[in-house]
Amino acid sequence: MNLPDSEISPARLDFLLLADMVAPGSRVLDVGCGDGSLLALLRDRKNVDGRGIEISREGVNACLAKGLPVIQGDADTDLADYPNDAFDYVILSQTIQATRQPKVVLEHLLRIGRRAIVSFPNFGHWRVRLDLLVKGRMPVTDNMPYSWHDTPNIHFCTIRDFLELCAEVGARMERAAALDAGGKPVRMALPWWAWNMLGEQGVFLLKRR
């Protein structure tokens, strides 16, 4: 169960970064946990007491088979039922762009968890900008493989947009990282505008102000 780094799917290298942000032995809620890969990683490597919410039945069944307590549910409707401060971390990995009300969801994350970890595909990445500029069409990339009319991703944002939302809901940023196309952190001290150009994904560790 305890996979070496090399066997983790390259598409989800961001899991390693997310896992690195979580303190060992903590209580974690993973919202939109998919097949439970991140939760299993956190359980096996960080001794985390993890819970999940997943919208697809296939995902939930995969989680149950891994012994993960995951409930079928929807981030937009079901977070309201969780009490305040129920978790040390609430993780929203590659999901915020698929929610109907990203702001409300983010507020719930910060209410339910002492900290929130959010990762999302950055719509400000240079390739996205170039696609739109040159082709004049909505970009389709490895991270955003859907065409505009059948995408579950209804609320794309850029790293800069997200920073603004964080300020709006009173979230303090404790850590931030931009990942390149390979899912590796952009290891350069750069200003935000540069990260917004070079990062395919943004990953943020947030705390309630």
């Binding site: 819970r51 039945r57 079928q72 549910g73 039922d81």
Partner: peptide, 18 residues
């Protein structure tokens, strides 16, 4: 039931079968 178990910090999975 699931909400109550969550609020009690119990370990709970839930699935609705089509």
């Amino acid at each position: 039931i699931v909400h109550a178990l969550n609020a009690a910090a119990a370990s709970v999975g839930f699935v609705e079968i089509e």
